[in-house]
Simulated scan of single mutants.
Amino acid sequence: MPLKSAAVIGLGLFGRSLAKKLAELGAEVMAVDKDEALVEEIKDFVASAITADLTNEKALIDSGVCDAECVVVAIGEGIESSVLITALLQKHGAKKIVARSHSELHARVLTALGAKRTFDPEEEMGKVLAEELYAPDFVGRIRLSTGQEVIEFEAPKPFVGKTVQELQLREKYHLNIIAIKRRKADEENQFEINQLPRPGDLVLSGDVIVAIGPQDAARRFEAVLAEGHGG
């Protein structure tokens, strides 16, 4: 189910971006920071924005952040503050706490205090950029908790003009094609989606192929594409 409500604590560049995007996606967002200027900057983009120092237990209770379906502690500086706020959120019954970490030790402490997930935006962005640089033909990827990975990639030249069956992605790479996205004529970034394509369906130049398979298989296929092969 989509997230219905969220509270974002800490409105630095990352926190503001997160709060705005969640609101844009349809969640009811409460944005909180002790800096009034940052709160003023975001108030028109979210359901509510309040100025408060949530290291103060009474302020945290009065703010109502614990009523949100998910609370994100997005504080960019001040490890002590993020630790204290996470502990107070857990104490007062926050349903799901996601917290920004600055080191492996910080992440372990936050997890021990009740954070369901920790993240380091710079580290995660570094990994994403590395993957994009390593395999620039990949449009996107989604890792699943089952150990599978969904990948999107633009059809390389050796694929063009072949049928799904002739590609032999399952036999060669243990990947199953689940969709082919074809750009609509004269409509930039608009696609017609052929879900579960048939063995005889052709791959054309510019098609984006969506496939699923084990993560290690996806990695091997990335290496093949990076070398300019794939046929």
Rank of each mutant, 00 (worst) to 15 (best):
L3V: 05
K4M: 04
S5P: 06
A7S: 11
V8R: 05
L13A: 13
F14W: 06
G15W: 04
A19T: 04
G26D: 07
A27R: 13
E28R: 15
K43I: 00
S48N: 15
A49N: 04
A49F: 05
I50A: 01
D53G: 03
T55S: 08
N56S: 03
A59Q: 12
A59H: 13
D62P: 05
C66H: 03
C66T: 13
A68L: 01
A68T: 07
E69T: 01
C70N: 12
I75T: 07
I75Q: 06
S81P: 09
L84H: 08
L84M: 15
L88C: 13
Q90H: 15
G93R: 09
A94E: 10
A94D: 09
L105N: 15
G114Q: 09
P121C: 04
V128L: 09
A130R: 09
E132P: 00
S145R: 05
Q148E: 08
Q148Y: 07
E149S: 08
F159H: 07
G161M: 03
G161P: 05
T163S: 11
T163G: 01
K172V: 00
Y173E: 00
H174T: 04
L175P: 13
L175N: 09
N176E: 14
N176F: 11
N176R: 14
I180Y: 05
D186C: 12
E188N: 14
Q190G: 08
N194C: 15
S205P: 10
V210M: 03
V224G: 01
L225T: 11
H229G: 09
G230K: 02
